[in-house]
Write a protein that binds this DNA or RNA. Structure first.
Lengths: 170, 170
DNA sequence: AACTGAAACTTCAACATTCAAAGTAATTTT
DNA sequence: AAAATTACTTTGAATGTTGAAGTTTCAGTT
């Protein structure tokens, strides 16, 4: 309501930027240490999380065009880290699946940042954990409210009425 | 210490990813709506915040090489959004300053995401604001601890033992 | 004053990302 | 079956990114 302590706003924005910057810089390092580019690593991670993904699914989750995904998958296929498997139910579709070599590559590049977060989180007291979750979810709710709908990829067809994805993209 | 509620960790990670994804997607939209690329917009924003910046300063703050900055500044100069001004104290240096046209371009692209955050933050009760700041700063402290030192620019030789930079590059 | 080394920046060449537009093949709708 | 739609790829063009090499300037040494 009232701005009791204006500096608090600044402090929270600064902290938010630090989070953003740290993760961004780290992702680049992580990728290069794995011998990949950031975009390629992201594809590999997503393909690993989900068992199999279509290029369209990748495009939607990454927020890029299908053409871009094609190019990225090409690179990963050339390195033997993923494979294209024609879908049996719909022959227009292609499933991208990770190879053993791709799995191995991911293990070479453990997400140290996430690990550090996990460790620190687990060291917190119960009430501190609860507070952190509550705060992060509050910020997330603020920031990704309608933002996702404005994504370049979704503008094609998917106009979700007012809601948001049912967490299907995790 | 003990993992009282394991799902809390997942929940916080998911929230963190939502924050990351929302801001990333939004930045792209913001840039294109301003007729710029994300990288160019970031340069413009930094040059606007600080009165004048050297290419080296830009490179450090953005986490990219000087060559990249040269190329980005070239584009912005070609569009008349920034200018290069030779430094008077050190003729090796160049100061990049924003032009009136560049200022105008930034106004065309207000940071709606930040505005939304500001609005939501100000609507919070006093104790909620305090909790949010505390949580965000805690996460930021966890994530950007030594991360920044691992920036791609430094990866060439600098293996800093355990310390971290004294915040000199903010 | 001349030499040397470092610093700031640019140029160059090579590759990665990204997308719109056009093209192909398969599916669905009419 | 014809038309429209969907999934994906190809193509061409712009941008981003970097390491290496080059230029100019500065700072310190001799």
């Amino acid at each position: 309501m009232q701005v009791s302590r204006p500096d608090r706003l600044d402090e929270s924005l600064i902290a938010l930027r630090r989070i953003l910057r740290a993760t961004e810089l780290f992702e680049r390092d992580l990728a290069t240490s794995a011998g990949l580019t950031p975009a390629q690593l992201r594809v590999l991670q997503i393909v690993d999380e989900r068992e199999s993904v279509t290029p369209k699914g990748l495009a939607r989750q990454m927020g890029v065009s299908q053409a871009t995904v094609t190019s990225l998958v090409d690179k990963l296929v050339a390195r033997g880290l993923v494979e294209r498997q024609p879908s049996s139910i719909d022959r227009r579709q292609t499933n991208v699946v990770i190879t053993a070599s791709g799995q191995a590559r991911l293990k070479v590049a453990p997400d140290a940042l996430q690990q550090r977060y996990v460790r620190a989180f687990e060291d917190l007291a119960d009430w501190e954990q609860a507070q952190l979750v509550s705060s992060l979810e509050r910020v997330a709710a603020i920031l990704d409210a309608e933002t996702i709908d404005a994504s370049p990829v979704l503008t094609t067809g998917e106009i979700r009425p007012g809601g948001r994805l049912p967490e299907s993209h995790n």
